[in-house]
């Protein structure tokens, strides 16, 4: 987060020197543009971070397509879809919060932020239900992993190789786990943004931290937009 804690020492009414303007910037515009560029570049590093996982996923999915489909179909696409919609709604409330702060609508700003947090927790709650189910079914990779006698979709006679299904579940847990970690960090950021908004730190002129935090939140949403079809919807046609 480019210096989100550095901002907002007090409320500014813009006329003289904005206390939120750090000494080494010439103008507020320059400071705002720097923060947003910094966040976009940071998101670029995040893309490459997940990119290594997508690369591994691509290679193993092409190689073990049958096992990936069989393992994927033990997930509930209904829960996955619900979570996708939850995240999309949270993205809407994030843009609403920014829209509200730019127009000085305090009530809408606070309620949007609270809704964002609720959606965030809802996502994690649903995710933990899914994880719990994986534990019960012994689908968590490791010593107690079991995936015996599961037929390959479309090939009723052939059984899935448990080792290859374990590769799917390994990637599933690493990808969704890292995504959930990003969600937790995002919730932390938005809790702070809610706190700061509550104390009136953001104004119609100065709301960079909300924008920057919003960029991060939307990015985490985009990652999920890809994870959902890649992990939940493999070869569902019968």
């Amino acid at each position: 987060m480019p210096d989100s804690s550095a901002v907002a020492v007090g409320q500014s009414h813009g006329e003289t020197h904005n206390p939120a303007l750090l000494h080494h910037f010439a103008t507020e515009q320059q400071q705002r543009d720097s923060a947003s560029l910094g966040m976009w570049i940071f998101l670029g590093t995040e893309v490459m971070f997940f990119g290594g996982l997508f690369c591994a996923y691509l290679i193993y999915r092409l190689k073990y397509f049958g096992e990936f489909a069989a393992a994927s179909q033990t997930l509930s696409w209904q829960l996955g879809m619900t979570n996708t919609i939850v995240l999309i709604c949270s993205s809407l409330t994030v843009v609403l919060a920014i829209w509200a702060v730019q127009r000085g609508k305090r009530a809408l700003l606070l309620s949007s932020l609270i809704l964002t947090l609720i959606f965030g927790f809802a996502f994690l709650g649903i995710k933990s239900i899914e994880y719990a189910e994986k534990f019960e079914k012994h689908h968590v990779p490791g010593p107690s992993f079991q995936f015996a006698n599961v037929p390959l979709p479309g090939h009723p006679g052939e059984m899935a190789n448990p080792a290859h299904a374990q590769l799917y579940f390994s990637l599933y847990f690493i990808m969704t786990g890292l995504h959930a970690l990003h969600m937790i960090i995002g919730i932390g950021i938005f809790a702070w943004l809610l706190y700061a908004s509550w104390h009136g730190r953001f104004t119609t002129e100065y709301n960079t931290p909300l924008e920057i935090g919003g960029l991060y939140w939307h990015f985490v949403d985009i990652i999920w937009i890809y994870l959902f079809p890649l992990l939940y919807l493999i070869d569902l046609r019968k």
Partner: peptide
Amino acid sequence: LGTYIAVWLALIAGTILTVVAAHIN
């Protein structure tokens, strides 16, 4: 605000469309 709502609806529609498409061969 209208744009945001429209995009939000489009995203939800896209999600449903993905699921439907996944069930078609």
